[in-house]
């Protein structure tokens, strides 16, 4: 009954704690009571219009964002506890961003081996070896010494996935991993993600790639205005959504 990632009544409002903006009539309810359980090995796809709170939800799971109220658990760790061990939580949950966010001053190999060395205190040689294997796995074996700016978007995103995997996470968060990519590069990234899903990785993915949804998602969650409007299997949500709002949104993105 209890999932591996448990989100209970998550609420988050923006506006009153933004520096230099004290006006209370500009409050934004980014999360308005979201509850979601993700089982071990499950791949959950989150869809919804821009501004519906998808990123905020993902960022709350590894505590890049702090909730106003509600609870989030990863296994037995309370992410939302006041004195939560952030390092441990972030070691457990990897994140992949829309804009890759690779470290520009480090080679791809160094990008992948940095956190294991610094956070996990793995030896430099061991970290390099692991990084090499991971980069080989995402098809970048011949690019180890390149810098991020020397790679295409698709290659950068695959390196970013390898970087997240290097910490040996128990779950991965993807925030629109292919939105910044040229169409011809989307597939290479989705292939890596699909392979991870097949290997049993627990994944929470914000994406509107229908192909990936059909191939890899166990469940699709539709969010709007900081709430989960409806959820179900990809088949169910895409072909017979209950809510009008969901159908309108799907019609819009599938046009």
């Amino acid at each position: 009954m209890s999932g591996f990632i448990r989100i209970v009544e998550a609420r988050k409002t923006f506006g009153d704690d933004v520096r230099g903006n004290r006006s209370h009539n500009q409050l934004v309810r980014a999360l308005d009571g979201v509850s979601l359980d993700v089982d071990k090995g499950e791949v959950v796809l989150i869809i919804g219009p821009s501004g519906s709170g998808k990123s905020t939800l993902l960022r709350a799971v590894n505590r890049l964002e702090t909730l106003d109220s509600g609870e989030i658990w990863i296994g037995d760790d309370a992410v939302t506890a006041k004195h939560a061990d952030l390092r441990r939580i972030r070691e457990d949950v990897g994140m992949v961003f829309q804009s890759f966010n690779l470290f520009a001053h480090l080679s791809i190999l160094e990008n992948v081996s940095l956190a294991p060395r610094i956070v996990r205190k793995v030896s430099a040689a061991q970290a390099r070896e692991t990084a090499r294997q991971l980069l080989e796995r995402v098809g970048l074996a011949d690019k180890l010494d390149r810098y991020p700016r020397q790679l295409s978007g698709g290659q950068q995103q695959r390196a970013a996935i390898a970087r997240a995997l290097a910490m040996n996470p128990r779950a991965l968060l993807f925030d629109e991993p292919t939105s910044a990519l040229d169409p011809e590069m989307i597939k290479e990234v989705l292939d890596v993600m699909t392979a991870l899903a097949d290997e049993g990785m627990t994944m929470l993915v914000v994406s509107h790639e229908m192909g990936f949804a059909r191939a890899a998602a166990d469940r699709v969650v539709f969010m709007d205005n900081g709430r989960i409007v409806e959820q179900g299997s990809p088949e169910q949500v895409f072909s017979s959504a209950r809510e009008t709002r969901t159908r309108e949104f799907l019609a819009h993105i599938l046009n």
Binding site: H105, A115, V119
Partner: peptide, 29 residues
């Protein structure tokens, strides 16, 4: 770039580690 700082945090680097390993090398350059 803020995104790189977030990525460092998401990987478990502390604020001090992020400053020394990610921000300062690029800032100084």
């Amino acid at each position: 770039d803020r995104g790189q700082i977030e990525a460092a945090h998401a990987l478990g680097l502390s604020p001090a580690q992020t400053m020394v390993r990610v921000v300062l090398p690029q800032a100084i350059r």
